[in-house]
Amino acid sequence: MSNNTRKYSLVEKYLPYILIAPALSYLLFFIGYPLTQGVLLAFTDQNGHFTLQHVYYLLYSPSSNFWPALEDTLALAAVIIPIQVMLALGFSLMLSANFKGKDMALYILIIPLTISDVAGGLIWYSMLASNGFFNKLFMTLGIINQPIQFFGWQFRPMEFIAIVLAEVWRATALVFVIIFAGLQMISKEYIEAAEVFGAGTWTKLRHIIFPMLKPSVQTALLIRTLFAFQVFGVVMVLAGRDIPVLAGEAYYEQTILYHYGVAALYALIIAAISIVIGYIYIKMFKAQYLREVSM
């Protein structure tokens, strides 16, 4: 009997670890193995000897697109993310008011959360193609005579705009959802207290709402920045390699050129950038009142 209870409590004691172990092992294997393998691929030749040839290729070869890809990935992030944060803040403030159809509006705004980057790209292609909605609309209205061309190598700046539009349209929902959740957690009384003490709309936003939203905005920023370095499908659909991005180059080196070492190097670079960004984020932002807000 006592033996029995001991066995039971022993199982109880290790139960959480037993429950977590399979998932954790799976993750560690499927992330750890590829990363090690990636390092091997990136820094060895066919014979298994150490080499920097892939690195040289990546950095210096005229057929490597690394620097333009890095540049465009950063440029896209720099343009898209601020717009998304502003829009998401606007949407959140809009939905914090009470009005008829509020739930409906909320559901509509989060639809893109479930739409893939490939589909998002195609949807915006239908808007912007030379036979697309906008061109046909503006031509019918007589605003333009010729369709505005968004796609093709000679229209790269327009392709860039198309990607920005599609990504802002599709991925703002994620930023919005995080910021809106944060806004909902702010007790209404904090805002009312500011009103009572004489704060106008702007003072309320600047001194109460924005500071209290800081953790959510930071989280949204982090997630968005990480995603920005993985941008792939939407670019491939709308611009192909006209606008090179890191993931796109990795894909190209891997599946078209069979430069497995170079592709692995791209993978490692994306992973390294993400880890560094995550680390900086944790170091930089440590909101002291986070505990209370998250209560």
């Binding site: 590829p34 393998q37 691929l41 990795a250 891997q254 993978a267 993400s274």
Partner: peptide, 15 residues
């Protein structure tokens, strides 16, 4: 959850 999982695909091919 935030790790860019797509990067595992390339080395996985060999495995």
């Amino acid at each position: 959850r935030m790790f860019p999982m797509l990067v595992i695909a390339i080395p996985l091919v060999t495995l």
